[in-house]
Amino acid sequence: MIYLRLFWEFFKTGLFAVGGGMATLPFLYDISDRTGWFTHAQLADMVAVSESTPGPIGVNMATYVGFLTGGVGGAAVATLGLITPSIIVILIVSAFLAKFRSSKYVNGAFYGLRPASTAMILAALVLVVKATFLPASGTAFDWRLPVLAAVLLALTNAVPQTKKLHPIVFILGSAVVGVALGLAQ
């Protein structure tokens, strides 16, 4: 029963991904490896689409994976799976808000969780970088890709006029560069 499995996989993702939308990425790689429902290349595309469309990234990525795996029904089930733990946890936390905020155990746990979450996103980044920059077997390394990456890194971090722009600007710009230079060849 694909819907049940989708729900369960995204329930786990929603329960254990701490730190926002990107934190779901390592879980999506894990799902890809174990189930083969979608490829690593598709995941990179999903991140781009999720960043450039309305809605929270984490929700968009779950919807996208669900759709690829089980059509519109799959999209709905994956999204519901992702948000169910959030609803349960937040309803409980909001009932004990003051206690939760001052609990030393809760604060201690998150003191450890935040760097771990960052480290897991870094590991996901390594996979995306490999899929993006390493040439397919039999083709030469394409030096235009790291040049584009360096330009984008500068524009998003160092150039004051552009670094505050929304990510969608850079995604669309990169798409135009990709078409103009024929980057997939």
């Binding site: 730190g19 990107m22 990425l25 990179a44 595309d45 991140v47 781009a48 960043e51 935040r114 760097p115 979450s117 960052t118 996103i121 870094l122 996901a124 980044l125 995306v128 970088v129 899929a131 993006t132 920059f133 890709l145 584009l148 990456a149 984008l152 890194l153 998003t156 971090n157 990510p167 850079f170 995604i171 710009g173 990169s174 798409a175 135009v176 560069v177 990709g178 078409v179 230079l181 024929g182 980057l183 997939a184 060849q185």
Partner: peptide, 28 residues
Amino acid sequence: VKNAFAGIRVCVCVLIANAVWKLGKKSV
């Protein structure tokens, strides 16, 4: 479309790298 996504993937790498950097400054 393939060409567009080849460009977009480079951008995705940069966006994720920026997210790691931002989160890292707050968590490490």
